[in-house]
Amino acid sequence: MNDEKVIQVQDLTKKFGDFTAVDAITFDVYRGEIFGFLGANGAGKTTAMKMLNGLSKPTSGNGTVAGLDVIKQSEKIKERIGYMSQRFSLYEDLTVKENIRFYGGVYGLSKQKIKDKTDQILEELQLTEVASKLVKALPLGWKQRLAFAISMVHDPKIVFLDEPTGGVDPAVRRQFWEAIYEAAKGGSTIFVTTHYMDEAEYCDRVSIMVDGKIEALDTPDNLKAHYNAESMDEVFLKLARN
């Protein structure tokens, strides 16, 4: 972890009509950090994340991602970030290889680079045997790991993961987090939302969102000490109950 701020956010707000989904959140994320973005369902995690990756226009406030303004330069930001959405987002009617080639192509990688990336992903995920199978034929855990690998196909500085381990078994979740550590070690910043509190323990720092506001932000250990709790689970429950 170092001091370079790759995400800076100030009073970022998103309103849908009268409803304030995200209420003036302020935080920084440092380079190479695994930043956990926690909150109950409907707390505004996904909306906040979408404002950072350019899918949603902030109602007010400002911020920068990878040195670019989230309001004025949202298209430019997209070149420097990866995103794995909550909904499964690979093409089920394309093969594993075709999905990698397509997203590589869309991010403007060269033919050779796409080929290298394909080999690398297939090997790392041990998908070589099913490379020519349609994605819909793969088990969910494999699909999720493939989606993660593809969201990093263009070596982005920051990757946003929206509940990446939803619905997969503990063994796959473990593999998934190993992959996340690997990516962070390579210098990428990981911004991850989750509502599995045990996963929060794996993060360098976590923020906890309640009703659109960030109620707490620190390392898991500090949070536990501060709230006099044994686990992140307890921290979360204490915060959410208030």
Binding site: L55, E79, Y83, F88, S89, V106, Y107
Partner: peptide
């Protein structure tokens, strides 16, 4: 409907 459009929208296309 499937959700892939979101993935497209987050690319610089």
């Amino acid at each position: 409907e499937v959700g892939t459009i979101e993935q497209i929208n987050v690319t610089p296309i």
